[in-house]
Amino acid sequence: MRMVFDLDVEKCVACGACAVSCMDQNDIWPDRGDAPYRRVGVVEPLPKAGDGRLTYLSLGCMHCADAPCIKACPVGCLFKDEQNLTLYDNTRCIGCHSCAMACPFGAPTYGPDGKMRKCDGCAERLKNGLIPACVRNCPTGALSCVPEETYGTAAFDRSLRAIVEHAER
C-alpha cells in the first residue's frame, strides 16, 4: 500500500508532541548531538496578510512522490520502498549534503559520524500494522499517514468543506 504523510495546518499547534514521540521511537538525543527528524515551529503573522494570524507547523520528511533527494544523492543511498516511503541505506554515504540541498523541507540530518539520517516513515511499524510514532500521539489530529487512495478522498472532502465554510462567512 502506498502511504502519504499529511499535515493539516488548521489543526497543528506546534506543541511538539510529534517531535518528542519521534525522538522516543528513534532514540534521538539532542543533548548528545543528534539532530531531530521532525521539528515544529511557529510562523509569526506575515505583514502583507495583515490578519495577525499565527501559523503552526510540524515538519519532517514528506516522503515526496518524486523525491528530489533520491536524484541528488551521488552514491545512491536513497530509494523508494513498496509503501512509497523514501528510505535509505547510509553505508555508502559520503556526507556531501547534496540530499539536504535538494530537499525543500530540510528533512535530511547528519549524525556525529557525518552520515545522513532522516525519518524512515516508521516503515517497519507500518508493515506491522502500527501507525508512525509522530502520528500516533499527535494530540490535535493534525498529522496523518494514510493510504494514497484515502488521502485523495480526504483532500477533496477538505476542499469541499473549505468552500462551504468560506461561503458561510
Binding site: 506543541c15 511538539g16 508532541a17 518528542v20 514521540s21 525522538m23 522516543d24 500516533r136 500521539n137 499527535c138 494530540p139
Partner: peptide, 13 residues
C-alpha cells in the same frame, strides 16, 4: 483515547 501531549510523550527521558 490514544493521544499524548508533548510532556507525556517524554516519559522515557
Amino acid at each position: 483515547d490514544g493521544l499524548l501531549c508533548t510532556k507525556g510523550a517524554a516519559n522515557r527521558a
